[in-house]
Simulated scan of single mutants.
Amino acid sequence: MGRTNFNPIWCKIWKLSCPAKVKFFIWRTLHGTLPCRVTLANRHMKVSPLCPCCASGLEDTKHMLFQCQKAKEVWRRLGLDEIIAQACEVDRAEEAVLEFLLLMPDQDLSIMGFQNTREMIAITSWYLWWER
């Protein structure tokens, strides 16, 4: 049987040099199955959809990982704030920002000075989720 739904992001994820829990987190994020507050509120759970860290935005995947002030500070300290801002600039929905970052060409990622930028993005995203 041939692959009908091949997506290059899955190859990138499974080849990352990081713990399996991080890969599974990325997989869940890209499938839109993380229980963020917005998702829980939309499923009639009695929870405020506001971000518990900043209370100034709705906690969806994009906000939690990239737009919350706490997340922005983490990315800034890692020196990845510009690439994150570039990824968020285009009108990308939640999971699409993470997918865009992980699919960036190697030459675009290597100019940041890190050898394992994809792994850093994946692990930092997991950390932001875990830390919340």
Rank of each mutant, 00 (worst) to 15 (best):
L102F: 05
K62M: 11
W10F: 00
V22S: 02
K62E: 12
G2H: 13
S48V: 08
E82M: 10
L78S: 02
W75M: 02
D108M: 14
F114S: 12
P49D: 00
R37L: 11
D81K: 00
I13C: 07
W27K: 02
C36N: 08
L109H: 06
E99Q: 13
A55W: 07
F66K: 09
T4Y: 13
T61P: 04
A20R: 11
R118I: 07
F100D: 05
M1A: 03
L65K: 13
C18H: 04
R43G: 09
C18V: 13
T124F: 07
M112D: 01
L109S: 04
V22W: 08
W129G: 15
S125V: 01
M45C: 15
T124W: 08
C54S: 03
A20Y: 07
W129S: 15
P52H: 00
I26K: 01
P105Y: 13
S110A: 04
E99D: 08
L102E: 09
R118A: 10
K70C: 01
S110L: 09
I111H: 02
G57P: 02
C53Y: 01
L30M: 06
Q107I: 14
G57K: 05
E99T: 08
R77G: 05
I26A: 03
S125H: 04
A55S: 13
H44L: 13
C68V: 03
V22H: 03
C68D: 08
R3I: 15
D60K: 00
E99M: 15
P35K: 04
G113L: 00
I9R: 01
R118D: 01
P49W: 01
S56L: 10
A20G: 00
W129I: 09
W14Q: 10
L128C: 11
K70H: 06
N5L: 01
I13N: 12
P105D: 15
L50H: 02
E99A: 13
I123W: 12
L101W: 06
H63A: 02
L109C: 03
Q67D: 10
C88E: 09
K23L: 04
W10I: 03
D81W: 02
P35I: 02
T29P: 03
L58G: 10
F24T: 06
I9V: 15
E73C: 02
Q67K: 06
L103A: 05
E94R: 10
G32R: 05
M64D: 11
C53L: 12
S125N: 06
C51S: 05
P19I: 00
R118Y: 03
